[in-house]
Design a binder for these strands. Structure first.
Length: 582
RNA sequence: GGUCCCGUAGCUCAGCAGGAUAGAGCAACUGAUUCCUAAUCAGUAGGUCACAGGUUCGAAUCCUGUCGGGAUCACCA
């Protein structure tokens, strides 16, 4: 239950049935929110202020009229008018205790929402070129996309996770040539130093050997035309296997892998373009030179263009290169057309910020495809990750073969750390990922802080069994505990925080911002750690009371609630809830 | 020059579809460890929310402009 929405509905009803309220009164702007200052109460509504204008009365007077109805609502203990006309609502202990019961009953499904109405949405992420292992730069999009997909699932969408394999461009030709070089070496030839522009990374040595073993000297003296295609396929298959393994190490999974090459081979590009053409969206023309800095080799040339400007872009965009082959953009149109036809009117692409210039044209193309002026495709950009080692930037160049692979990072600091760190920032802000910092298990590192809270919860359960002989700590027993015993302000504060989880899930999903979960979990952990330490001085606030099994059981219910919420959040982020830290 | 993103405490960042006195971590300072895991906690100090207008009961949040930083800018992907 999202209690804020629950009470918002009730308050809107009350507002609509006020004496003298016109039948068409707009209650939309009325909100019920947690006040920033908890001393103001549990809920605050702006209803009186919002209604002041349409009702032509003072906010405070309207508040007076609303109070009786609000006082009647289930769970409401106290209603006050404050400030310019806020109505502050305090809910009774019983209401909060009932929420804890709800949390325990629902388990990690607590917070699941029906906001998405089961609508299908396709989330495409990673889509790294199959020309080598993943590097850290890819990790952010991977983790973000994965967490976003999980978040949307939790919020009620039917999510499909997809990876677009860029196996058709010039970069895979380079890959094939690089493989051929390694293949020749594997067969004992000395091809000399690797030519400029090939991928020098060592990850192609092994595939080169495998190819030599499989095909022997079949491609050794053959023309490039003969071996380019088969080697391209061989190499991209190998590279995709690498990438999948890297993703697996990061805990990222996709359900669907779509090959760009296959789109071309199946004639999907022609199909998509002719579909647009049939609707007058395609023409041959000459583009204006780009404003500002002119590329050295710019020359006016007629090209096949898509009328992107009709769908919100700044200029029309080329579909064919000067040599007559399709642009990447054309293939991408085909790809999104394909997704649309597969039943995804809603799509999300997760891209690196260096693709920012691509957003408008792709969004406009998708609108042209679906014929909708809005909606369709949403693109989430992830800013760059700067890799540092103790404050010093780590230089990387894929061309020079010097880059830190994702696998290196995962092996060194662990998957949970990588995931949490990359998710503890909103996607639009750049991240400095400092090896030295994330490696140390300090409080500078929020992952351990949150995991520690979860482990502490588990530890309390372990100790309770030990310290309270004969205590039944099974979930049945805990769920049946007398929660009426939980009435200390600190206990209720913990429950309140747990109760804001469903609202948070919905807001994070609405904004497509999984980082909010990470911050929430940090808050939840902080509140729990605080309560735990309170028990050092005040023995009555400890969880375990050997001489009072009833209270122990109630406290265990509280702990179980915290544990459930943290586990539920970590689950969305793809981070392991550790049960014991040593 | 166009487009997109960012600008909040010394540093790194939150700030919830505008809401009451702007928050956390790090760093600094004070304190808590015979006690359920101190990988923790309690406290002190620190801000003209880049700047200027506008919208309104009310702006860090929305709009316009300026300044500063980053990304990107026909045919690559």
């Amino acid at each position: 239950m999202n209690l804020f929405r629950h009470f918002n509905d009730l308050v809107r009803e009350a507002a609509a049935s006020l004496d003298g309220a016109p039948s068409d009164i707009n209650v939309g702007p009325i909100t019920v929110e947690p006040p920033r200052d908890p001393s103001h109460g549990d809920l605050a509504t702006n209803a009186a202020m919002v209604l002041a204008k349409p009702l032509r009365q003072k906010p405070r007077d309207i508040a007076e009229m609303l109070v009786p109805a609000i006082q009647e609502m289930d769970g409401v203990a106290l209603v006050e008018i404050a400030g310019p006309g806020f109505i502050n609502i305090r809910l009774g202990d019983g209401f909060w205790q009932a929420r804890l019961t709800e949390i325990l009953r629902r388990g990690t499904s607590y917070g699941d929402s029906e906001m998405g109405h089961g609508d299908r949405v396709n989330v495409e992420y990673v889509s790294a070129n199959p020309t080598g292992p993943m590097h850290v730069g890819h990790a952010r999009g991977a983790v973000f996309g994965d967490a976003l997909a999980s978040l949307l699932e939790k919020a009620g969408w039917d999510v499909t996770r997809e990876y677009y394999i860029h196996d058709a461009g010039a970069q895979v030709d380079v890959l094939a040539r690089s493989l051929h070089y390694r293949y020749r070496v594997a067969l004992g030839q000395d091809p000399g130093p690797m030519p400029e522009g090939l991928y020098p990374g060592e990850y192609l040595i092994e595939p080169g050997r495998e190819l030599a073993e499989r095909d022997q000297d079949r491609w050794l003296d053959a023309d490039e035309q003969e071996w380019l295609l088969p080697l391209r396929e061989f190499a991209t298959d190998r590279m995709m296997a690498l990438i999948r393994a890297d993703l697996h190490a990061l805990g990222v999974e996709h359900e669907i892998f779509t090959s760009e090459r296959k789109l071309h081979a199946d004639g999907r590009v022609e199909e998509a373009v002719s579909d647009l053409e049939a609707r007058g969206m395609v023409y041959t023309g000459v583009l204006e030179p780009p404003k500002g800095k002119l590329p050295d080799d710019w020359e006016p040339r007629p090209q096949l263009l898509f009328r992107a400007t009709e769908w919100g872009d700044d200029v029309d965009r080329p579909l064919k290169k000067s040599d007559g082959s399709w642009t990447y953009f054309a293939a991408d149109i085909a790809y999104h057309f394909d997704k649309y036809k597969r039943g995804f009117p809603q799509m999300i692409d997760v891209l690196g910020a260096d693709h920012g210039g691509y957003v408008k044209r792709m969004v406009s193309a998708t609108r042209a495809i679906t014929g909708a002026k809005t909606g369709g495709l949403t693109i989430k950009l992830c800013q760059m990750v700067q890799l540092l080692d103790d404050g010093q930037p780590v230089k990387m160049s894929k061309r020079a073969g010097t880059f830190v692979t994702l696998r290196d990072v995962v092996d060194r600091v662990g998957r949970d750390v990588v995931r949490f760190m990359l998710l503890t920032r909103k996607n639009e802000a750049p991240i400095d990922f400092d090896f030295a910092k994330v490696t140390e298990q300090s409080r500078d590192n929020p992952v351990f802080y949150v995991q520690y809270a979860h482990a502490r919860c588990c530890s309390i359960f372990r100790n309770a069994e030990k310290d309270v002989p004969g205590l039944d700590t099974s979930s049945e027993a805990v769920h049946a505990a007398d929660l009426g015993l939980l009435k200390h302000p600190e206990e209720l504060a913990l429950i309140r925080l747990m109760t804001s989880w469903p609202r948070l899930v919905e807001q994070a999903a609405e904004a497509s911002e999984p980082h909010r979960l990470a911050f929430y979990l940090y808050d939840m952990a902080s509140a729990f750690h605080g309560f735990w330490t309170r028990g050092r001085d005040a023995e009555d606030l400890r969880f375990i009371h050997p001489d009072n099994p009833e209270l122990t059981l109630a406290r265990l219910a509280l702990v179980d609630g915290v544990r459930t919420i943290i586990r539920s959040g970590l689950q969305v982020l793809g981070v392991t809830p550790i049960e014991e830290m040593r």
